[in-house]
Nucleic acid binder design. Structure first.
Lengths: 346, 346
DNA sequence: TTGTAGGCGTTATCAA
DNA sequence: TTGATAACGCCTACAA
């Protein structure tokens, strides 16, 4: 209310309280600002004595170059952004980790925006992040194609994660979900399961559609498939177990590790043996999957590597190099202890 | 090598490829740059017709104000930074989530730096992040006091997380680990455990020192305490189980949930019943703790709330408000299913 | 209501 | 080797 523009932002106090500027240092050292700049950036073409004077003055004043001013002058920020739908999801945490780590190797930092699953916010966040960074990694599984097309059609480098968008030449790092799901189907069929429940993900999730469709196709003639409404979180899996058991399925295929984990927990509460009575599979291979009890059979997506590959493409663009070709990972099945032979007695 | 300054940075191409500027829009709309600025910021004192012209021109040119230039002119970036020792640790993930969420409510974004547990990097990262942001949240459990003092003694607002530093008036959000550990000691003693193993954390971790010392004190006269070397990760807990069992302890107190989780997994592999033969406790209450099998008895630190409180203090400083008093959370025991009465037979 | 002009802090060009 | 000086793109008194 106090702000004239109606913003809720804080007082935009210019003249940062007392922060020393390059001019102050120049004055104190008796040189020009240009020389201070050269010293601060370690350019070799400065008289050693002046270097010393400048260093001393800078130290005395506690001077540090202002990043914003540097960014403006240099035309680059040294920052890349990432938009994720849910920071609480281990999948995006891992991707973020990979991105942050790879970017850090080049002294780039990561600016982060969490859309909290509100797809309609994402275009806005994308604009905002782009204005503050040199490039953007977009994880927006639920964003409608047309919106995505708009967001991706900008001069700022953008890399799409786990989402294809043909036509425009937007670099993409994706995952062949079908490949992974076929492996799961084969694994379960081979174990003798004839009645399988798919614990589904969010209806508007592209990954969910692909995973379900693949499971249906791959299972045809091998097992009956029941679909049970789920979601993307623990609770969704936890709460779906009774409905799953009602189908008489001997194996449940979770949309992702999280729902599988939830199902596992509920099954334990109910005293059902896994995999003795029911087998359970996940998808993604989040770090906790191997520590489930029983450990979770799943499909391993190299999540951190996705983040790193996204960085590689961003970096190629920033450095003006040839754009790396799109990558698509074929995730492999990881058999652990949550799956076993179908129980013989029916 | 191609860069004169020895930097490994990318080409600092000034003149961002064709990006429209405020001047271009002004020219296209036949008004001054000041007017464009007013329109873009929604100032009401502009003739509706001009507003329309400017809007159209901006849209036609795909103009968007440059964030860096705005930051420089306004003297604020709209960004806060956070330094964490390990982005892979659920504890810091949760803190980050709380910070990001709270900051987002004020349209602030979060710039992140992961020190990968290398404490000596942290001062450097801190400087770098500060230059690009309006304030900094510091999670640096292993940083030496003297270094911390230097890092915290700057004009940029800093908030310390889970770390006290007396003398300077640096806002702090902390946790009373002793309070939580006393609760665990009481809980186990009450269940009849007379021989307890402490699965320790990193030796140079302040939290580890406090937790261990408290457990020792609180256990005196109630149970014998064995210390077993551990760490901060799954594997450390997993690999310590044999040594724990060798002590004959009937209860193991994990330094944190992660090591407790690892211990749980190993105990299951060995066919040991939890809590029938051995009870296990954690610390922190990370999201996965409740989904362990058996679910993990632990001490609940309001991790996201820590992040939010850190933001509150940063915001107070940014808004020039009265600095909120330091907070210290007294985390409470959460009894789940990994603890039970000590086995009678010895 | 609009435009002019100066400033934000830094880097880079070009003479000297 | 050093120093003026002009960008970088935007915001904002101040004047008209």
């Amino acid at each position: 209310m106090s702000s004239p523009s109606g913003h809720r932002g804080p007082p935009s106090r210019r003249r940062q309280s007392g922060r020393a500027t390059i001019g102050a240092v120049a004055q104190a050292a008796g040189v020009s600002r240009a020389t201070v700049s050269r010293v601060m950036n370690g350019l070799p073409t400065v008289d050693p004595e002046l270097v010393e004077r400048v260093r001393a003055a800078a130290a005395a004043l506690g001077y540090e170059p202002d990043g914003t001013a540097q960014s403006l002058a240099l035309g680059r920020t040294g920052v890349v952004g990432i938009i994720v739908p849910d920071l609480g999801n281990p999948v995006f945490q891992a991707v973020l980790r990979g991105l942050s780590s790879a970017a850090g190797d080049r002294d780039y930092r990561v600016l982060i925006a969490d859309s909290h699953e509100r797809a309609e916010e994402e275009p806005i966040l994308a604009r905002e992040i782009r204005r503050r960074s040199d490039g953007l990694v977009l994880c927006a599984p639920r964003m409608p194609d047309e919106v995505l097309r708009q967001v991706a059609t900008v001069r700022t480098p953008v890399v799409l994660l786990n989402r294809r968008l043909d036509g425009l030449g937007v670099p993409t790092v994706s995952v062949d979900h079908a490949h992974g799901m076929r492996a799961i189907a084969g694994h379960l069929a081979g174990l003798g399961h004839r009645r399988v429940a798919y614990l589904s993900g969010p209806a508007n999730s592209a990954a969910n559609r692909v995973r379900l469709a693949t499971l249906r196709t791959a299972g045809t003639g091998r097992f009956a498939l029941h679909q049970v409404a789920g979601g993307a979180h623990f609770e969704d899996g936890h709460d779906a177990v009774e409905r799953i058991l009602a189908t008489g399925a001997t194996a449940v295929v979770g949309y992702n590790d999280l729902v599988a984990y939830g199902a596992l927990a509920r099954l334990a509460e109910l005293g059902r043996s896994v995999p003795g009575e029911v087998s359970v599979t996940g998808f993604d291979d989040i770090p906790f999957a191997r520590y489930a009890n029983p450990s979770l059979t799943t499909v391993a997506i190299p999540l951190e590597e996705l983040g790193r590959q996204a960085w590689n493409r961003l970096w190629a663009h920033l450095a003006g190099e040839e754009p790396s070709p799109d990558v698509q990972f074929a995730p492999e099945l990881v058999v652990r202890h949550s799956t076993g032979p179908a129980p013989v007695a029916r």
